[in-house]
């Protein structure tokens, strides 16, 4: 059942890269059954925000809370309930997709049998590549392995950085299906994308990182910095 209480809350968050402040005083909250769509132009700090939310990097100021507790105090529980897919797939080229999934599960201490792994991969359209080393798979196929790993992780919160890159039309439709299922079951998503997604019936919370600029303003700012 979707819960209306906010699970993930962000207070006065600020982030800097090098000496440049990317954003500051960011506040938002996310409840179960919601999808946070992070928007903003290139170099505005979308990826930085996502990495802050995973706990990989630390904010300049402000705080991120999960179930009311600061991330730093609660890291292990948070990482049990969160799954992240960044620009890199995090799969090993030497291993087959099934081995990759089972390895990821083992490291997260989730039981995952070979049959379950095979089913997850077949569901995502990789039934023919189960026994090939990931090295020989195409870019899109590897992305799919990473997505299958995301599904089998069974996390409540998904943090996805441009999950659509490298996927064909079927892949995009597949992700839309995954997102809809996840959210309708009370899951939470934080994601960025440059592509349009059709997510009917999903509660989308938009979040703008950095100022909304017109095209001309953007060019001026680019030259200035």
């Amino acid at each position: 059942m979707p819960d209306t209480a906010a699970v993930l809350t962000v207070h006065d968050l600020a982030c800097a890269r090098g000496e440049r402040t990317l954003f500051s005083d960011m506040n938002f909250q996310l409840c179960q059954g919601e999808l946070l769509l992070v928007q903003g132009g290139n170099g505005r700090g979308k990826t930085s925000l996502l990495r802050l939310l995973t706990g990989l990097s630390h904010p300049l100021a402000g705080e991120i809370r999960w179930r009311g507790e600061a991330l730093a105090d609660n890291r292990e529980q948070y990482h049990r309930e969160m799954a992240y897919l960044g620009h890199l797939n995090g799969i090993k080229d030497e291993l087959t997709p099934v081995e990759n999934l089972r390895l990821a599960a083992e490291l997260s201490r989730i039981p995952l049998s070979e049959q379950e792994a095979e089913r997850a991969l077949s569901d995502i359209g990789l039934a023919r590549c189960l026994d090939l080393p990931a090295r020989v798979l195409s870019f899109g196929q590897r992305r799919r392995v990473a997505l299958a790993s995301l599904v089998t992780a069974g996390a409540l919160l998904w943090i996805l950085d441009e999950p659509l890159t490298g996927l064909d039309i079927h892949g995009v439709a597949l992700i839309e299906g995954l997102l809809r299922d996840h959210v309708s079951r009370g899951g939470m998503v934080v994601m960025t994308t440059h592509q349009a997604l059709s997510l009917d019936g999903v509660r989308i919370v938009p979040l703008q990182v950095g100022p909304v600029l017109t095209k001309i303003e953007e060019e001026i700012e680019c030259c200035a910095s």
């Binding site: 992240y84 960044g86 797939n89 995090g90 490291l107 997260s108």
Partner: peptide
């Protein structure tokens, strides 16, 4: 680090 699996391991619920 190169293929992203280090990040994934750091994000696993383990010390």
């Amino acid at each position: 680090h190169h293929d992203g699996s280090l990040e994934q391991m750091l994000l696993s619920p383990n010390p």
